[in-house]
C-alpha cells in the first residue's frame, strides 16, 4: 500500500490546500505514475531539510509518504524546495488545485 498526504499552507492569502491520497483508490496508471515519481525522487531516503526562516508570503509544503513499513515526511518552503521533488510536487498540486 501507499498513501500520500500533501499540504500547502501560507502564501499571500494564507489558504491551505491539502490532499490525502490512497493510491489503491486511484486508476492503476495514475497510481503507477505517482509511485514512479516517489521512486525517482528517492523520497523515502531524503533527509529532512534544516528549518529556515520563512519567506514572508511564501508557501510552506509538507509531503508525507506512508507504506506498510515506513512513513516519511519532508517539509519545505518556496525558498528551499528541493529541485528533485518538483515533479512530485507538481503532480500533487495539480490534483489538489482541481479538487
Amino acid at each position: 500500500m501507499m498513501r500520500i498526504i500533501f499540504e500547502r499552507s501560507g502564501g499571500f492569502m494564507g489558504r491551505k490546500v491539502s490532499l490525502d491520497l490512497d493510491l489503491a483508490t486511484l486508476p492503476p496508471d495514475q497510481a503507477d505514475a505517482l509511485k514512479l515519481l516517489v521512486a525517482e525522487s528517492d523520497f523515502l531516503n531524503l533527509t529532512e531539510l534544516p528549518t529556515n526562516t520563512p519567506a514572508p508570503d511564501g508557501f510552506a509544503y509538507s509531503i508525507t509518504v506512508k507504506t506498510s513499513t515506513i512513513q516519511h515526511t519532508i517539509q519545505a518552503s518556496d525558498a528551499n524546495f528541493p529541485q528533485g521533488l518538483r515533479p512530485l510536487l507538481n503532480d500533487l498540486l495539480a490534483r489538489a488545485r482541481s479538487q
Partner: peptide, 9 residues
C-alpha cells in the same frame, strides 16, 4: 500555476 507572490528576503 503559482497563485502567489512573496518576498524572499
Amino acid at each position: 500555476g503559482y497563485d502567489n507572490a512573496f518576498w524572499d528576503g
